[in-house]
Design a protein around this nucleic acid. Structure first.
Lengths: 121, 121
DNA sequence: CTAAACGTTCACGTTGGCGTGAAGGTCAAG
DNA sequence: CTTGACCTTCACGCCAACGTGAACGTTTAG
């Protein structure tokens, strides 16, 4: 599979895929002419990358986490033990973020229901 | 209260406060010499701005929401009815974001517990 | 009166995750 | 053999929320 095919399958732009490679997140094989060649596994990797990035992790963190995600987190790849502390900090960040989002969420729903109450008078 | 005092009270840099004014989020009075003068209400406004920004809203959205936040969302300021649709889209975005964060959260906790299990062998 | 500690307005720098050409190489089809 | 649809590597652009001086005016304490 070449880059535009993977782009179609994942819904991610070819530019983004090249960027992921540049950051070490997604490293394809190459043909003799230098074309990038991707496998089915790369499709899944791209899916994970997107989820992690969408959660606000930066690409450095994603690069570290990806090798630790084997079979839905059942096993842990070797070398990941050292990163546990870092992951816990990230987890802390995520929990904070979730709490902040919940605050704003309730504020927004309050405004929206108040607005609809006004509109229906 | 002048700008550095508000900065101390809120923990937000003076530069950020000026930026908020530039974006129409926080508009102070001025002395005859042009110094910005803030009141106690501005302290609360800054707190709200920070919460909204931390939740991923951009400054345009914050500017629209702020006047609608009266007394913890009990009442709705006039003119806010028109923005309800926009707020609902933002709410949708926030819910999506929360879901994504929960996904990554569970993945991370999985990795962390697996890592600690390995470490304690 | 003077110096320090404030304040002001430009205006350019930063960071991350890409978008968007530019300039050119590769390859299968007609 | 040429066209066109791919691919490659630069390399600059963008956006948001500020950081960071620069150059200069204001206020207050001694």
């Amino acid at each position: 599979m070449r880059i535009s095919a993977l782009a179609r399958r994942t819904g991610v732009s070819a530019r983004a895929l090249r960027y992921y490679e540049e950051k070490g997140l997604l490293v394809p094989e190459r043909t003799s002419a230098g074309y990038r060649v991707y496998t089915e596994e790369h499709v899944e990797t791209v899916r994970r990358i997107r989820i992690l990035l969408a959660a606000g992790l930066n690409s450095d963190m994603v690069r570290e986490i990806l090798p630790c995600m084997v079979a839905d987190g059942e096993f842990l790849a070797p070398g990941c033990e050292d990163l546990i502390a870092e992951f816990e900090r990230e987890l802390q960040r995520i929990d904070t973020q979730i709490a902040e989002l919940h605050d704003v969420r309730s504020a927004l729903t309050g405004i929206i229901t108040a607005g609809k109450a006004l509109a229906s008078r």
